[in-house]
């Protein structure tokens, strides 16, 4: 059976999604303040790594890295509502790319596994 990553279209799907997803994130009034003053190219690379992870693709996911990478944002008030917003935008990105709802549910479930690490709990 094909993996989720393969069914989504693999690397090409990540490349197609990254601009759309990141643009949604930067436009979203709920979360865009966390991206002020950041290096956009480096951030885009991180978004790609995150999408690869959420798509069930190859990754070296480390909860420790995820905690360390978001600790400064948690200090600025990053909480569940912001995490929910990101998952919602991820779903909207995939809907825009005409990904079947059943696969979007699976992606959201993988993203969900990072919640406690991202929020430093």
């Amino acid at each position: 059976m094909q993996s989720l990553y393969e069914r989504l279209g693999g690397e090409a799907a990540v490349n197609a999604a990254v601009d759309i997803f990141y643009r949604k994130v930067l436009k979203d009034g709920r979360i865009r303040q966390f991206f002020d003053g950041i290096d956009m190219e480096r951030q885009a690379a991180k978004q790609k790594a995150f999408l690869t992870l959420a798509f069930g693709g190859p990754n070296q996911y480390s909860g420790v890295d995820m905690r360390r990478g978001h600790a400064h944002l948690v200090a600025k008030g990053l909480n569940d509502t912001h995490f929910d917003a990101v998952v919602e935008l991820l779903g909207a990105t995939l809907t825009e790319l005409k990904v079947p709802a059943e696969l979007i549910t699976q992606v959201a479930a993988i993203a969900e596994t990072t919640r406690n690490d991202v929020l430093g709990r």
Partner: peptide
């Protein structure tokens, strides 16, 4: 420095 090890993340 590396992350995905599969040519996607470009780290």
């Amino acid at each position: 420095p590396s992350s995905c090890r599969s040519g996607v993340c470009q780290n």
